[in-house]
Each structure stands twice: as C-alpha cells, then as structure tokens.
Design a protein around this nucleic acid. Sequence first.
DNA 1: ATTTATGTTTACAG
DNA 2: CCTGTAAACATAAA
Length: 284
Amino acid sequence: MPELPEVETIRRELADFVVGKRISRIEVFSAKQFIGAQKDILGAKVRKIWRRAKLLGFSLDNGKTILVHLKLTGQLVFVPSSNGEVIMPRALPFADNKLPNKTTRLIIYFSPSGRLFFNDLRKFGWMKVVASSDLEKETLEYGPEPLDKDFTVAYLRKIFAKTGRAIKVVLMDQKKIAGLGNIYANEALFAARIDPRRSANSLKEKEIACLHQAIRKIIKEAIEEKGTSAADDAYIQANAQPGGYQKKLKVYQREGKPCFRCKGKVVRIKLGGRSAYFCPGCQK
DNA sequence: ATTTATGTTTACAG
DNA sequence: CCTGTAAACATAAA
C-alpha cells in the first residue's frame, strides 16, 4: 500500500516528469474522486510537488494546490504520450497492461506533452483542488515526519506515556507519527524486537530508543528501494515499475514462515482491525 | 450464491 | 478529550 516511502518515491519521480508543465485538460471518469473545480487548475503550471505523511501536493502557479491521497489502491502513472491507448511492458496491478484501463478514474493532460493517469481499483483515493493559502488546515493534524528533526526519542517517550493502546496502533496513528502504515509499522516493530500488542506506555527507555532508530532506518531503506510492491498490492512507481523493498520484508505477509532471526514462526493476529505480523519468539 | 477479508482515513458512538 | 468501530468501494477467496 502507498505509505510514506511509496508516496515519496512517486513524488520524486513525478517532480521530474511534470514540474514546469502546464495542465491542458482533465478527464474525470469517477466524479466523486475529483473534488473542486476543473477550471481552477486548467492552464496552470506545476511549480512544485511535495509530500506530507501519505498526502501528495501539486503546487500550481495560480495560487491553487492539487492534493492527492492514494488510500489503498491508488496509482499515479505518468506517460510521455499525449493521446491514444498506451501499451505498457507489463500488466499493472489490478488491471491489464493498457492505459487507460478499467481502474482509470481520472487523467490529467499536460502541455507541451504527457499524461498523468490516476488509477484506483477501490475508489477510496481522491484528488482535491484547494487554495494554497488554505493548506495549513489540510496538514495540521499530522504528527512529525520520521525523517525530520522533530521526530525524536523524547517525542516518542512523550506520546507513548500518554496511552495504553497497542504500540502498533499508535505507530500507525497519523496524528502521532506521519506516514507509517501497516507494512512499516510491522517491520519496525520486528527490527526493534517489540511485540506489537505491547501497550505503548509499557515500553522501556531502551526500547523506545531502539524503535525510534528502527523506524528511521526502515523508512530510509524503503525509500532507497523505491517502496514496497507486496503481493496483492496496487503500488507501482510513477513509471509503472514495481518497487524493491518487498524483497526485504521480514514479517509483513510472512505468516507461517520461519523467522529470519530465531527458530520461531511468524504469526498474524488482528490489532485495531488490521493484520499484525510478528515473531513471538523474538519480539517481546 | 452469499459472506468475508483486504487496508487507509473519517465520521460517529460511547 | 480518548478510544473503538463501521463505512466508503471492488474484488477474490471462502
């Protein structure tokens, strides 16, 4: 699923593809997924693409910003051609190898050339036009970015002390930490050898410091690998290629498989309504 | 054929 | 305020 490393990968690549280009046309096939007025972005030039948590923002030169959230199955794929059907070298997740396909919900056309396909099998994702001056209220709720200076051991100590919720649930709370989803919360807890069921306020100082390091390391590595394209996962890069971090997963989607660290078996349980994968042998 | 699981965020109930 | 649950949707698996 698109979490911080996946959205960041898409951001970097799209910046190369569309910054400096003008929006010439928008084709909306799924009306509820495009919020705002098309005329507010037509003719505008993309100045910058930024990311906050799992939210992507296209800053335009007319005072507007396009926000994009991919939710579970959203994809943003850029192709250089400006019209017609594009045959991709391989089938896209949840679709065939053509663009557009049955999951294409919206297309943005650029001038002088190129198209951005917004595909989304389950239609949870959205694209929204807002005034750039109103951005603060859109991003106000997010906690610190794991790779930013304000993501410190002291900060984690403070938020963990305040709650008895399971540590994994807290890691995935966007108001507490920005950008971690199911994949990286599970992987970080494995790296830190912490049982995902532990209440956040039960973590010892040493464990908090270890978890802090683990989160940063894993997020960095996952960005280097250009994200995780796991089984049944919609995620692909903006060039339609899969990421590489699925090769490095230690527990996510490894239910029943042997732990890489001890003799244990990876198990899967439900925590806060989602799958938690961990090794009871070495995560305490 | 009908039900359930999938995973992110938000709305809502307690 | 905090916490937990259902819903948004499409599809595959049970």
